[in-house]
């Protein structure tokens, strides 16, 4: 693996049992993502986007082949080692935000830092920075129920970014947002990508997201059908 490659997917295959047979979600995928990319896996529903993201995020294991994340092979990592790698270096953004409803904006963003056992002072600084990046400094004490969908997704971005991970995996992050909010959060993520050099990998079929990508990897029936670099 070259120095700048932080994700390397080699002959990756994932099959799921289905009835008496099997369904092949990913079929021998080869892919390399370098540091600082703002790229996305695109394709229709059922093409294997989320499955690929789950394997790269060490949430699922491949049937065949391998995914090497930050130099660690998914096949060689134990469950505990995978959790540690996720905790330290990976951030996740979900379609449904998945904020913890009983906690405030500050506490939701703070949660990943609690797992890293940072001191209260360090946590406070990092959370306030992250909320400033996403423009929610005035909402620290609000609960998710008091926020709009766009604001909730911005909290989710702050939560993913607060520990300054190497990679952020975003699965359909704009699916529940209107156009204005979608553009807002995409601009926010693009800025973080440029300022902090964080690698963003999206799974999406939303044209608004695709319009921001610098690299578009198209999956059809579990195979990479196109891999294009977009110059903007």
């Amino acid at each position: 693996m070259k120095n700048t490659e932080i994700i390397s997917v080699n002959s990756l295959t994932k099959r799921f049992p289905m009835g008496l047979g099997e369904f092949t979600a990913l079929n021998g995928i080869d892919l390399t993502i370098t540091k600082g990319e703002f790229s996305g896996v695109v394709g229709p529903s059922g093409s294997g986007k989320t499955t690929l993201l789950n394997i790269i995020g060490l949430l699922d294991n491949p049937t065949d082949g391998d995914a090497v994340i930050l130099g660690s092979s998914s096949r060689a990592l134990s469950v505990r080692e995978a959790a540690i790698l996720r905790r330290k270096h990976l951030g996740f953004i979900f379609q449904t935000y998945n904020l913890l409803p009983v906690y405030t904006v500050f506490e939701n963003a703070e949660f990943p830092l609690l797992l890293l056992k940072m001191t209260a002072g360090e946590r406070k600084r990092a959370v306030l920075d992250a909320l400033e990046w996403v423009g929610l400094s005035d909402k620290v004490g609000s609960k998710p129920a008091q926020l709009s969908g766009g604001e909730c997704q911005r909290v989710a971005i702050a939560r993913a970014m607060v520990k300054r991970p190497e990679i952020v995996l975003a699965d359909e992050p704009t699916a529940n947002l209107d156009a204005e909010n979608s553009h807002h959060i995409l601009r926010t993520m693009l800025k973080l990508n440029e300022d902090l050099k964080t690698t963003f990998l999206f799974a999406t079929h939303d044209d608004k997201v695709i319009s921001y990508l610098k690299r578009k990897i198209t999956l059809i029936d579990g195979k990479v059908s196109r891999d294009e670099t977009i110059i903007r």
């Binding site: 949430l59 790698l85 996720r86 998945n98 797992l115």
Partner: peptide, 14 residues
């Protein structure tokens, strides 16, 4: 379950 899934995704061990 949702909360547990989220916490696992964030790297909390089972």
């Amino acid at each position: 379950y949702g909360e547990v899934g989220l916490r696992l995704a964030m790297g909390e061990e089972k």
